[in-house]
């Protein structure tokens, strides 16, 4: 659990982060979203004390983050940034081993952990371990950056626009990987982005920031249904609102009995994907298939349109 209490950071007279308080539940993904200059990155960097707050406290699992020296705190918190920040003079394996080496793990344990993480990210340890970062593609570099952040098994992972430099296809894959890894390790993730789409896709909770202030802190569905201010509404983009709402739930929740013809859609796909498939194929209903291929029922265009409507206040 991360408790952020009345955190303020001033540079001169300007409050970059202004009296922000919220609580991040353990084992969840919280996304801080805002425009550039909203103070979201500064807020993130105060959690691992790359920036010291002017006032306020941040507690990690009940312990004030100022109770240990900054560098020791940061070894316990994973940190991944845009443009990966890999050390160019060190191999992939050495990069991933950075924090374990600082913590003085023995060699066998470090090697095992590096292999585990590389395998997890579908990079062959024997092939990629000895390479230098500039010999990797952008997507591979980003994965190694996250692997380095996770190397010392931190409970908390901070990510500052980690997917900002990736093309849309690789970005979608990286987001899926992140969610899978979050499930596997149960890591508490706080991620900063300016992309509301990414926030809605990844976040269990979303914190919207503007000009240093926390505007709204809520689950994605609530942000979409009840944006606190016009600014939040602008961030969501009114044109995309219904589709984003649909993207939050899977087809499974919209199944109704009945038959439909044509290719089935998996029950784990989002309702947005289902609607897109319906519109594109010109059908009124789609069969829904379970993982094993059994048909569970159908999803209709009318039901999805209803679900895309603004929830009653």
């Amino acid at each position: 659990m991360i408790e952020i209490e009345h955190i303020t950071k001033r540079y001169g007279d300007i409050a970059v982060v202004d009296d922000v308080s919220f609580v991040v539940e353990p084992h969840t993904v919280t996304v801080i979203v805002g425009t550039s200059g909203s103070g979201k990155t500064t807020l993130l960097r105060m959690i691992n004390r790359l920036v010291e707050p002017t006032s306020g406290t941040i507690r990690l699992d009940g312990e004030d983050n100022r109770s240990v020296p900054g560098h020791e705190l940061r070894r316990r918190i994973g940190y991944a940034i845009q443009g990966h920040g890999l050390f160019p003079h060190r191999t992939v394996a050495q990069n991933i081993a950075t924090v374990p080496v600082l913590l003085g793990w023995d060699e066998a344990r470090i090697d095992a952990r590096v292999d585990e993480l590389l395998t997890l990210y579908q990079l062959d340890p024997a092939q990629f371990g000895p390479r230098y970062p500039h010999e990797l593609s952008g997507g591979q570099q980003q994965r190694v950056g996250v692997a380095r952040a996770l190397a010392a098994e931190p409970n908390v992972l901070l990510m500052d626009e980690p997917f900002g430099a990736l093309d849309p296809v690789i970005r979608a894959k990286a987001q899926e990987d992140l969610l899978a890894i979050q499930k596997r390790f149960g890591t508490t993730i706080i991620l900063v982005t300016h992309d509301m789409e990414e926030a809605i896709h990844l976040g269990d909770r979303i914190a919207v920031m503007d000009e240093g202030k926390l505007i709204q802190y809520a689950a994605p569905a609530e942000i979409l249904a009840k944006p606190a201010t016009g600014f939040v509404e602008t961030l969501i983009g009114t044109g995309d609102r219904p589709f984003r709402l649909l993207s939050l739930e899977t087809v499974e929740d919209a199944i109704e009995p009945g038959k439909a013809t044509g290719n089935a859609i998996p029950a784990t796909a989002t309702q947005r994907d289902a609607l897109a498939e319906l519109l594109w194929s010109g059908r009124r209903a789609l069969p829904v298939a379970a993982g094993d291929g059994a048909i569970l029922g159908r999803v209709t265009i009318d039901a999805l349109v209803k679900r895309a409507a603004r929830p009653a206040a």
Binding site: H84, P88, T98, L102
Partner: peptide, 25 residues
Amino acid sequence: PKSVTEASRGVGMTGWQRLTRIELP
């Protein structure tokens, strides 16, 4: 590169470790 110096702080290196392991090399 800014991302590299940022990362060297972010992983919890001390000032001396950043100098000898990252900046000087």
